[in-house]
Design a protein around this nucleic acid. Structure first.
Length: 888
RNA sequence: GCGGGCGUGGCGGAACCGGUAGACGCAACGGACUUAAAAUCCGUUUCCCGCAAGGGAGUGGGGGUUCGAGUCCCUCCGCCCGCACCA
């Protein structure tokens, strides 16, 4: 079977399949016509328009409760990819389901439209970023519309639009006014050849991605959000985000990284100013064998000025770039400054002072003391430079006489020893004691330290929101007054030389100081694109408001987002920044809430097998033919192809499948159905040709089934017959169990299980032989259930089925079906019977059979008798409606 | 390196609070229909022994708790995500 070769019926647009089915004349489901028709009908009906005020359904009744469903908005790269299809399908199922459950739903869409790729396109193809971006947005909007998403398109926003970013500039000024933005120097990756600042992603193994030159670090004056002011609050509030995945909360908790420790002042021999270090293990102070400075510590810089070798070492450290990953994975290296620090408690003990590449300037004080016995990094360092290793924490079952540390540091609990006044204490007690002593002797202090750093927002780039600041030689940085916003990005920029086009622009930056009127220059940096995405969810509540960023009433009507859906890769930064921003918005009076996302769901990636030719190059799925045994050959040449493991779809591996092609071949419903059916949504899924074909067959099967049955069904709305036969009742039980199960599964995001239940129920409907009139009534009910339960997932087919069943109204406007509880619970249950924990029989019992009766029935079973005979019963465990375990 | 997660048939997965492992789909195989193919329909399908009845093994590896473990604990292995300037 050809992989992703269009089926014959899709090669031209005519519907040629007119083969009559058994006894009826059937045509194939024409998804193209149908999908376009229902999309138009929904639009005409304004079915997805979010209502800023919702009238009560009946006079006196409460108005519909609101529900805000949001998927992470896309970067307009040009075409949607399967990850988008998955993300927006999940969100759309929820939006449609919640509408059916009687909620007033807001489900908007917009574009995260600033960013580096537009500048890269400009450099590579000479296309202006604005044009490139708008063209991409138009293309992707059309693709998303093909999916049949229930989005209120009237609320569409693009962050690169001045009508969006002028408000962002306004918010910048408010953060500044409230002292939540400040300016300081910080480090960037500098490409000495291209003379430009590089993003971490543009640094590959310490070299610039374009120039290949070893990168350097440079200090620039930049703006920072004071997110650390909220460290404790952001941490504490995680505990209340009970509809967030536990793993995301944990990751954020660790990212914020609250730790209690101490700052300790070490005297440096022959110098006035003591060295201030931070440690989380002050209890191990007596095990210290060295101190180390970050290469960017002011003292390191001072010493390097008169020590060329140290200057070389610092330069070498700089070539690692600014990413923590690169610094932490590099080999641990140090440079002995020759200075000695004095141990605060041990008279006469001198420790060497190193500059070490693994000490981070951004955390603590940029200086540490090393206790090799109880910290792996310190131990590696000590072994390398042959420094002392003195254990001071004795493991519970170790002997003080012979306990020694080899190549593994001991980081566990124990009793303190070798430590003067702390001897015999537990680790927590020792921490308290040593901090008390340090404070009493004014040699240190207990502190709470956070790993979280302030958020640098300045970017030396063109395609971003301009920072509304003017730098005046006399007044310094001066905010652009609110009534002069927006500071517009100029269109006439060139990308012919490296660096920031805003900076090169002949006139843009020239202006006058808003304060004194003197000639001054605009800030030529733009904002980090994470700023754009830190408040777009709030702007969706009032996208048309012009005179202010947000309308409080509207924000409070819709916020918080009840269900946010997006990739796990945003688990930390985007979500944390948005939480911080929302706290700012509350402080400035734009809203009364502070947590933007009440519910969060993180979906997995879409993966696909990879293929390589004999020559080693990657092949795309439609360049190969799959053979029944799973091997593959090149379609044109017939040469063998190596089938590699499934990996995240990416252009570099050529394993991408184009959603538009899929939708044109199989229809949006089929694509959506397969997306939901394959894997649990939080896990990575594998896109397969077989899978989409299976989904395609199912849409056809549903359509055929209902088309064949419809003429024989009682009319729409026919009353339930007074008497129901066994067969009809069994079908009704299946239908109501399916309603119950699918409802639970959608509520719990188990879409793959919801799909499986629909398959199972469809199998039951297919097998059902209707005879009496009550059978046909039950069959109509079954089809109505099928149409309504599948509608959130396959909305077009749902409408089509609903129409086939004789209804004129749009299914999308109808409430969700309710299961009859009496039909959901079975009267009898199958109970497993084990002997010594092994399954030996099953027995059917009336539901809720008492323990004694169940025990008796189990013991009477012949298979059990055979095994139990002649042995003493030791124990019989009965779990009602589940299991009887006989122990002999 | 640090932090977080995942691992079940040939494949994707199901298994509720620790209670019948493999629902459902895909693939494969056998059959029906057809001049033929496609489509469709019916059946089989965790592995091993056995004609069968039946028995044994089995949820990445090893160990533990329990009447009972895919599920809980310890440990090891493999893969994935994030690491602050990609979005």
């Amino acid at each position: 079977m050809a992989l992703l070769r269009p089926p014959p019926w899709a090669r031209d647009n005519t519907m040629r399949c007119r083969r009559p089915g058994p006894g009826t004349s059937m045509s194939r489901y024409n998804f193209k016509e149908s999908e376009a028709k229902w999309q138009a009908a929904w639009e005409r009906g304004g079915c997805f328009t979010a209502r800023d005020s919702e009238p009560a359904a009946q006079p006196g009744a409460p108005p519909k409760p609101k529900y805000y469903v949001l998927e992470m908005f896309p970067y307009p790269s040009g075409r949607i990819h399967m990850g988008h299809v998955r993300n927006y399908t999940i969100g759309d199922v929820i939006a449609r389901y919640k509408r059916a459950r009687g909620f007033s739903v807001l489900h908007p869409m917009g574009w995260d439209a600033f960013g580096l790729p537009a500048e890269n396109a400009a450099m590579e193809r000479g296309e202006p970023p604005a044009e490139w971006t708008h063209k991409n947005i138009a293309a992707m909007r059309a693709q998303l519309k093909m999916m049949g998403l229930s989005i209120d398109w009237e609320r569409e926003i693009a962050t690169c639009d001045p009508s969006y970013y002028k408000h962002q500039q306004h918010l910048f000024l408010e953060f500044l006014e409230h002292d939540l933005i400040y300016r300081r120097e910080s480090w960037v990756n500098w490409d000495p050849v291209d003379q430009t600042v590089l993003a971490n992603e543009q640094v590959v193994e310490g070299k610039g991605w374009r120039s290949g030159a070893p990168i350097e670090r440079r200090k620039l004056s930049q703006w920072f959000f004071k997110i650390t002011e909220f460290s404790e609050d952001l941490l504490q509030a995680l505990g209340r985000l009970d509809r967030w995945p536990e793993k995301v909360r944990l990751m954020q908790q660790n990212w914020i990284g609250r730790s209690e420790g101490a700052r300790v002042y070490f005297k440096i021999a022959g110098r006035e100013t003591p060295l201030e270090i931070f440690t989380t293990r002050p209890d191990t102070l007596f095990g210290a064998s060295f101190c180390a400075l970050s290469p960017h510590h002011p003292l390191a810089a001072e010493l390097a000025a008169s020590d060329p070798d140290l200057a070389d070492f610092v330069a070498e450290c700089d070539r690692l770039g600014t990413s923590e990953e690169a610094i932490e994975t590099a080999e641990k290296k140090g440079y002995d400054t020759g200075l000695k620090v004095l141990h605060p408690f041990v008279e006469g003990q001198e420790l060497p002072l190193y500059v070490a590449n693994f000490v981070l300037m951004d955390y603590g004080t940029g200086a540490i003391f090393g206790c090799p016995a109880h910290d792996q990094r310190d131990l590696d360092f000590a072994r390398k430079y042959t420094l002392g290793v003195l254990p001071v924490v004795l493991p519970p079952d170790a002997d003080a006489q012979d306990f020694a540390v080899g190549d593994t540091a001991y980081v566990g609990d124990g009793r303190i020893y070798n430590s003067d006044f702390m001897n015999g204490m537990s680790v927590p007690d020792a921490k308290k004691a040593v901090i008390a002593r340090l404070e009493a002797q004014e040699m240190g202090t207990g502190t709470v330290q956070y790993r979280l750093r302030d958020w640098g927002l300045s970017r030396q780039r063109y395609w971003g929101c301009p920072i509304p600041i003017v730098h005046c030689p006399a007044c310094g940085p001066v905010p652009v007054p609110a009534d002069r916003l927006p500071v517009l990005l100029p269109d006439d920029v060139t990308f012919d030389k490296p660096g920031n086009p805003l900076h090169h622009h002949p006139s843009w930056k020239n202006t006058n100081c808003p304060s004194c009127g003197a000639t001054a220059e605009r800030d030529t940096d733009t904002m980090d694109t994470f700023v754009d995405s830190s408040w777009y969810f709030a702007r969706f509540c009032c996208p048309q408001v012009e005179d202010k960023p947000l309308d409080r009433d509207m924000v409070d009507r819709w916020m918080p987002v009840d269900q946010y859906v997006g990739g796990i890769e945003h688990a930390i930064l985007h979500l944390l920044y948005s939480r911080f921003f929302t706290r700012g918005l509350k402080r400035f009076g734009y809203t009364s809430i502070e947590e933007p996302f009440a519910g969060l769901f993180t979906q997995g990636m879409v993966c696909h097998e990879t293929y390589r030719s004999e020559a080693g190059g990657w092949l795309t799925p439609d360049e190969i033919d799959k053979r029944p045994d799973g091997s593959a050959v090149h379609r044109d040449s017939g040469n063998p192809v190596t089938v590699g493991r499934s990996e995240k779809m990416s252009k570099s591996k050529s394993n991408v499948v184009d959603p538009e092609h899929i939708i044109e071949t199989y229809g949006a419903d089929t694509a959506r159905w397969f997306m939901l059916s394959d894997s649990p949504p939080e896990r990575d899924m594998e896109w397969t040709a077989g899978g989409i074909e299976g989904a395609w067959r199912f849409t056809q099967r549903l359509w055929r089934l209902i088309g064949e049955a419809a003429p024989n069904l009682p009319p729409a709305g026919a009353p339930m017959p007074a008497k129901m036969g066994d067969a009809a009742t069994a079908l009704r039980r299946a239908a109501h169990k399916t309603i119950d199960g699918v409802t639970r599964d959608i509520e719990a995001f188990r879409f793959n299980r919801a799909v499986a239940q629909v398959y199972e129920f469809t199998n039951a409907v297919t097998a059902f032989q209707a005879r009496g009139s009550e059978d046909y009534w039950a069959l109509r009910e079954a089809f109505e259930v099928l149409a309504r339960l599948t509608a959130p997932m396959m909305p077009h087919l749902g409408e089509e089925m609903w129409r086939s069943l004789g209804y004129a109204d749009l299914l999308v406007t109808l409430p969700w079906p309710e299961a009859d509880p009496a039909l959901v619970i079975d009267e009898s249950v199958t109970v497993a019977v084990q002997v010594n924990g092994k399954l030996r029989a099953t027995i059917d019992l009336p539901r809720d059979t008492e323990e004694a009766a169940a025990r008796e029935r189990a013991l009477a079973d012949p298979a059990v008798q055979r095994l139990v005979e002649g042995k003493a019963l030791r124990k019989v465990i009965v779990v009602k409606n589940r299991i009887v375990n006989v122990v002999v």
